[in-house]
């Protein structure tokens, strides 16, 4: 008869083996469970904990573990850095491109930067020498390099990158001190109001490959706020991420403060959120239009706020009770 400690250790072994997608000893596992009714309870508790562990580390994946590079006792193969963090389905292509990347930075020639800017409410598209294109939203400043079409720095604002993928030359975007590396991709980056948010519509992007090394596959967004070490990821509708180009902003719980920043960028409207509503989440779609009065009249009820004229433009505040 196994005691609880032995059951727990055996349950850990099952859990570990079951993580292998090819695990097929479910009958034997069922027999093991059936032997003693306490086993299922202990296993489930442990499996639930295992899921919790995933959440703990998903909040802000810590730097890739290379515990003691000096002694060389633990070596992490660069070929497989975190490629399965989101499940085992990312194939060898990703690993291969990661290997190819490692030697790349050294080869870059001296940079020759230039910048492209848009005013609030203005939009521009840029086509790069390699066939990649970048759509700039309003109030955006992007720095490109004449010598290297594969790097861009988003100084502020919002840009949608449609990148022609090249295994040997990953496209790299710098924003808010972070590095984003594409793995064949359409992705949107916002650098505004103290936040960096990245949304991947197609392919995959790697956030800070040299540090946190967070992989973002299609349908995922990532958000970091300035001065906050926590990197938050969540699922999102890829169509919603790029809807701004069709003059629609789609939200699934974004704080109203961010919505106001988006409206400023997209429409050139001077609009901010008062502290009493800035953190309140908003779910829904906002259709943009150029007629400010009509737009603002619609906006209040939609966001459930009052739109007031302040000294520096429009202010979203809580509705009178």
């Amino acid at each position: 008869m196994m005691d609880d400690m032995q059951i727990r250790d055996a349950a850990i072994d099952w859990l570990v083996r079951q993580r292998d997608p090819a695990f097929d000893e479910w009958e034997a596992f069922g027999d093991w469970l059936a032997e003693d009714p306490t086993r299922a309870a202990i296993y489930q508790e442990l499996a639930a904990l295992d899921a919790d562990i995933g959440d703990w580390f998903a909040v802000a994946p810590s730097p890739v573990s290379a515990p003691d590079p000096v002694s060389g006792t633990v070596r992490i193969a660069p070929s497989s850095l975190s490629r399965r963090r989101f499940g085992g389905w990312l194939g060898g292509a990703v690993a291969a491109s990661l290997v190819a990347m490692t030697g790349y930075a050294v080869l870059q020639s001296r940079p020759d930067p230039y910048s492209i800017e848009t005013a609030a409410g203005e939009r521009r598209s840029v086509r790069l020498a390699d066939g990649s294109s970048i759509d700039l939203n309003g109030a955006t400043r992007l720095i490109l390099d004449r010598r290297d079409a594969r790097v861009a720095t988003l100084d502020r604002g919002e840009a949608l990158f449609t990148v022609v993928h090249d295994d040997d030359r990953p496209f790299i975007v710098h924003a808010a001190g972070a590095e984003l590396r594409d793995v064949g991709t359409i992705f949107n980056v916002v650098r505004d109001g103290g936040r960096l948010s990245v949304a991947v519509a197609e392919g995959e992007v790697i956030y800070n490959p040299g540090a946190e090394n967070v992989s973002l596959p299609a349908g995922r967004t990532l958000m970091v706020r300035d001065g906050d070490a926590v990197v938050r990821r969540r699922a999102a509708d890829p169509a919603a991420m790029v809807a701004w180009r069709q003059n629609r902003l789609v939200y699934d719980g974004a704080p109203i403060g961010d919505v106001a920043a988006d409206l400023h960028r997209n429409l050139g409207l001077a609009i901010t959120a008062a502290p009493d509503v800035a953190a309140r989440p908003f779910r829904g779609a906002i259709a943009l239009e150029r007629n400010d009065d009509r737009f603002l009249a619609r906006l209040g009820p939609l966001l459930d706020v009052t739109v007031e004229r302040g000294q520096q433009g429009w202010v979203l505040t809580a509705r009178d009770k």
Partner: peptide, 25 residues
């Protein structure tokens, strides 16, 4: 300790099968 930490991270966070981790380390 560094080895057990690396083993756990590789397995639980990176999803690498045990056999591969053993070979790697």
């Amino acid at each position: 300790g560094p080895r057990a930490e690396a083993v756990f991270r590789r397995h639980r966070l990176d999803g690498i099968p045990q056999r591969e981790i053993a070979a790697e380390l």
